[in-house]
Computed example of a mutant assay.
Amino acid sequence: MTTFSQLDKYASKWFHDEMRRRGFAVEKKFIFWRKRGPLFDMFVTRISSGDFLEIKVTIWSPWVNHSNGELGEFPPDYSLIGGRLSDGFPTDMFGEPLLSVEDEQVMELSLRSLLVLIDQYALPWFPTINSYETYVAYVGKRGYNPTPERIEMVKAGIARGFLQEKFL
């Protein structure tokens, strides 16, 4: 059974540097992020069944929950848009694969495969979400079903964020 500590220790040998080259900061528990105006491009991970890494691709904004854009819960434990990274992303937000991380030899292959998926599917998707309209087009779709009140709260927060922070 692989832990985040074991995965992080192995990834620090080379994977973290690869993510930094792509413009991402490295957080604990194998989370990677970069800021674009009011938005944060993020890769959030979880280990399931002890030996499989699931990578969630999301674009998060603190403006949704905080009227001043405060980072109270960073990194967040929720996402409003995005889905699981796979070779079907972003069309299929719930596709495979779950990458095996059962031992170092398999981790090496899985992390190299992960970089390919990131480069081919996630990195091209992030810049397509570049406005209030493109962000809210995803809210309430792809498996996230907020109440109408929550949708309005999300829309108001994202709109406020785009008014307050210059989009890069």
Rank of each mutant, 00 (worst) to 15 (best):
V57P: 02
L109H: 14
V139F: 02
M107C: 14
G72A: 15
G140C: 01
M1R: 11
I59H: 01
N130Y: 06
Y138G: 10
F89C: 00
V57Q: 01
G23E: 05
D87V: 00
F30P: 00
N68M: 12
R34Q: 15
L111I: 07
G161W: 00
T3Y: 05
V154R: 02
Y144E: 02
W14Y: 15
G95L: 01
F52G: 02
M19W: 06
D92S: 04
G95F: 01
F43E: 02
V101E: 03
I47M: 09
D119P: 11
D119F: 08
P124G: 06
L80N: 08
W60F: 09
E149V: 11
Y121D: 04
D92C: 01
V139Q: 03
A137S: 15
P148E: 11
S110H: 03
F162L: 07
F94R: 13
Q164D: 11
P148Q: 10
I129L: 07
S86N: 12
S67H: 13
Q6V: 12
G23K: 07
G83S: 02
P124R: 06
F40V: 10
L123D: 06
F167R: 09
P124S: 05
N130G: 13
V101Q: 07
V106W: 01
G83V: 02
R84A: 12
K29Q: 12
E27Q: 13
A137Q: 14
L7C: 11
K35E: 12
R20N: 09
L114F: 04
I55G: 00
Y144R: 11
P97A: 05
L114T: 04
I158M: 02
W60L: 00
W60P: 01
S131I: 09
R160G: 02
Q120A: 12
G23S: 07
T134M: 06
N65C: 07
W14Q: 14
E102Q: 13
D8M: 15
E104Y: 10
R150D: 12
L111K: 05
F4R: 04
P90Q: 08
R84Y: 11
N68A: 14
F52W: 10
N65A: 07
P146M: 04
M93R: 10
Q164R: 13
D8N: 15
K56G: 14
E149G: 09
M107I: 11
I31V: 13
E18F: 05
W60V: 03
F162H: 02
R142I: 03
Y78K: 11
E54Y: 10
T128F: 08
Y144H: 08
G69C: 05
G143V: 07
L98A: 12
Y138S: 08
T91R: 11
Q164L: 09
T91Y: 09
Q120P: 05
T134V: 04
T3F: 03
